[in-house]
Structures are given as C-alpha cells and as structure tokens.
Simulated assay, not measured.
Amino acid sequence: MPTPPIAVDIDGTLTRSSGMGIDPRVLDPLAKWPSPVVIATGKSFPYPVALCQFIGTPERVIAENGGIVYVDKETIKLGDDNAVTALEEEYRAAGYQFGWEGADTVNRWRETELAVARSQPLEPLTELANKHGLEVVDSQYAYHVKDPDISKGAALKRAAELLDRSVSEFVAIGDSANDVSMFEAVDTGIAVGNAADVAKKAADYVLDKEYATGTVAALQQIKAGTLQGSTDCE
C-alpha cells in the first residue's frame, strides 16, 4: 500500500516534551518520507521554510494557520489582512502590548495575522476581533487573530491541489485547536497525547505518546500500516 502524504504541525507535535525546540528524532523520518510532507504551522512564513531546509525535505509549507501556502516555489497568500492591520493599530492605541520581548520575532515577518502572547488579556483582543470580523484562535502557545475564512484545513486543500493530490489522501498530525480544520479535511487525523481536548475530539486517532515521541510513533505505524490509538474521541 502506498505511503500517504502527511501534513504535520510544529509546536507540540515536532517538539520535545518541554514544548521547546525541535526533537531531533523527527528529522530523519520526515527527510526520508517517500510521499510529500507539508509542514503546517501557526508560525510566520520563514520558520517552516527554514525547518524544511534543515530537515532536507522540499519546501512545502502552510504558515500562519493557513494564511500562506508555499509549495515547490509557488506562493499563495489567502485572506485579506487589512482588518488585521486595523485591529493591530487599535490594540496598540488602547495601550495593550503583544507580549513578546525585544524585536518581536513572533510577528516581525507575519503577513496575514497577528499573534499575541497568552499572558495578555483575552477579552479586549476578542472584542476588537469581533468588531473587525476576525476570530481569535488559541493554539496553546499564542492567541492568533485572523480572518475566519483562513484555516490550516483550507490551506491544505490548496497545497494538495498544487501537489496534484487529493486532500483526503493526507494524514494530518497535530495537537491544537488550529489543527482541527486539518483533521476535518483529511480522512485520517492524528492527535498526539498532549493535544488539546478539542483536537482530540476532532481526530480519528489519539495517541498515548506525547509531543514528538507520539509523532515518531505515528510515522512508524503509518509506514507499517499498523496505526494504533484510541478512536473513541467523543
């Protein structure tokens, strides 16, 4: 049976159990994966591209929770970021900060959304988002303010088209609320053991193992055709 293409999140999915830093055990399995690998993240555009370069896999990424799709040198920017820019200006004018120290590399190269630290108050951010027709998604690592029509799932459909594949062929692996749309778009969605409850409920399989340990186990099982995990996700 052919090995399916995969779409995989970064934070909480390819990272160590501390949640910080890529676990090096995921690098070889991704580099040697025989079908397309799409890195799908809430991080800004440069980060997943750099990760692909370090892994040694073709640059196929979904960035900013679906705001940007980049596959084999073709870039698609989804959604209208004008409302995000207006919210950002009003948020600053109201005296709020994004919560990132220094040069704010979290948002510095972000093109289609805004990421606010979870240490910042959620209510005023949500109020402004509603005013501008935007939504706030909690990835467990940041509050992401974005166009509600943008999602990892919708972006994966575009990425699949560029790869001349059906999105249903993909296996998606993730851990957060922003991965739910990917699970809904594919036939097989896998939540690692540390996943948020909303992600576990949307997944077809929930692993016992957490973070990158879970992802490595999932990749081994997918390739062997022995995928295991709870399917009682209600």
Rank of each mutant, 00 (worst) to 15 (best):
T3I: 15
T3K: 09
P4M: 06
P5I: 02
A7Q: 06
L14T: 05
S17Q: 14
S17E: 15
M20S: 13
D23T: 07
V26G: 05
P29K: 06
P29V: 03
L30T: 02
S35P: 08
P36M: 04
T41A: 12
P46T: 06
P48N: 00
P48E: 02
V49S: 13
C52D: 09
I55Q: 00
P58V: 04
E59A: 14
R60E: 04
V61Q: 01
V69M: 04
Y70G: 01
D72K: 08
K73Q: 14
T75I: 09
L78M: 11
D80C: 09
D81A: 15
D81H: 14
A83T: 01
L87Q: 02
E89D: 14
G99R: 00
W100N: 03
D104N: 09
R110A: 04
A117T: 05
S119Y: 04
Q120C: 10
L125C: 06
T126R: 14
E127G: 07
N130Q: 14
N130R: 12
K131T: 00
G133L: 03
V137K: 00
D138T: 06
S139H: 05
Q140D: 15
Y141N: 12
I150R: 05
S151F: 05
A154M: 15
A159S: 10
A160G: 08
L163K: 11
D164P: 11
V167L: 11
S168T: 11
F170P: 06
F170Y: 10
I173W: 05
D175A: 08
D175H: 09
D175L: 06
S176T: 08
D179H: 04
S181D: 08
E184G: 14
G189W: 02
G193D: 00
D197L: 13
V198I: 15
A199K: 00
V206M: 06
V206T: 11
D208Y: 12
D208W: 06
D208N: 08
K209L: 14
A212I: 06
G214K: 00
V216C: 09
A217N: 05
A224L: 04
G225Q: 02
T226Q: 09
T226W: 05
T226H: 08
Q228F: 15
S230W: 11
S230Y: 07
S230D: 10
